[in-house]
Simulated scan of single mutants.
Amino acid sequence: MANSPSGDSMLQRVVRVLETFGPDRTLQTAAQIARRAELPRSTAHRIVDDLVAAGLLERDDEHRVRLGLHLWELALRGSTALRLRQASLPHMERVQTRLREHTQLAVLEQDEALFLERLSHPDAGANITRIAGRLPLHASSSGLVLLAFADPAVRERVLAGALPAVSAETVTDAAALRRELAGIRRRGYTVAPGSVEAVSTGVAVPIRDRGQVAAALSVVLPRAADTAPAIEALHTAASAIESDLIASRP
């Protein structure tokens, strides 16, 4: 693919356009996309037009664009995330029904925790997580589990980088995080009070597929809640999900 004067390939420019969309930015003009993707307006308009023609973006009556259903369709074809989500949902529903709190499924993606699913109860407490949203690995219960069981090279890269605070209680000291990650590997779960929001406690366990940790299953509880029932419910659900993953293998 042809490169731009900056050296970016056309594919890289297309990815930059698509990455301007997010949970809080679902509808944009081509001019806004150009600015956020740091592309010339003419280039951004041309890419947007091509993506609309292919069905990867959709344009409304005011000429604003959103991610298209065809992009969603392509993303789900043969996706390991879809298989994981399908195996997990029935068991997540049981956890959510029992605990009546937020129940979440996350995977490791580009050194962040990417949330594939979230179930919530109307009376559940605060939670900033969204489906298709991301959090730093060190700053949530799901992320801590994923980081604890990640490839050592990934773990070292994350710990050597910036560890920003999401809340006043987010652990940002690499040495303290190393100790916590070692404890998670021993225990098989984590309890993270206040790491994302002061009023909440995250509890998470790993889900394994083919012997490797493929995801983290978590709940978000009120800060003062007893975590023992959540740990038990999550372990039971994770075991059932792992069995269903084995049964769903081609």
Score class of each variant (00 low, 15 high):
Ala30Thr: 02
Ile231Glu: 08
Arg13Asn: 10
Asp209Gln: 06
Arg83Lys: 06
Thr170Asn: 03
Leu163Cys: 07
Glu180His: 08
Ala132Phe: 08
Gln96Ser: 13
Val220Ala: 09
His70Trp: 02
Thr190Ile: 00
Arg25Trp: 03
Leu74Glu: 10
Leu99Ser: 07
Ala182Glu: 15
Arg118Trp: 07
Asp209Arg: 01
His63Leu: 11
Ile207Gly: 01
Val166Met: 12
Arg94Ser: 11
Asp49Gln: 02
Glu101Phe: 01
Arg13Tyr: 06
Arg94Asn: 11
Gln104Asp: 11
Asp50Ile: 01
Arg64Leu: 11
Val65Arg: 02
Leu163Trp: 01
Ser88Arg: 02
Leu82Pro: 03
Leu137Trp: 03
Tyr189Trp: 09
Thr172Val: 12
Ala168Met: 05
Ser4Phe: 01
Ser79Ile: 03
Ala247Trp: 00
Ala165Ile: 00
Ala2His: 10
Glu93Cys: 11
Ile207Phe: 03
Leu105Ala: 10
Glu242Gly: 10
Leu163Tyr: 02
Pro152Met: 02
Leu82Asn: 07
Pro5Gln: 07
Asp50Pro: 04
Gly194Met: 09
Val203Glu: 11
Met10Leu: 07
Tyr189Glu: 13
Thr97Trp: 02
Asp60Ile: 01
Pro40Lys: 10
Gly55Ser: 14
Ala176Lys: 00
Ala132His: 12
Arg13Trp: 03
Ile246Gln: 11
Ile184Asp: 13
Ser195Cys: 12
Phe21Ile: 15
Ser239Phe: 06
Leu144Arg: 11
Leu105Gly: 05
Val171Ile: 12
Ala224Cys: 05
Pro152Gln: 02
Glu93Met: 14
Ile128Trp: 15
Ala34Ser: 14
Ala240Arg: 13
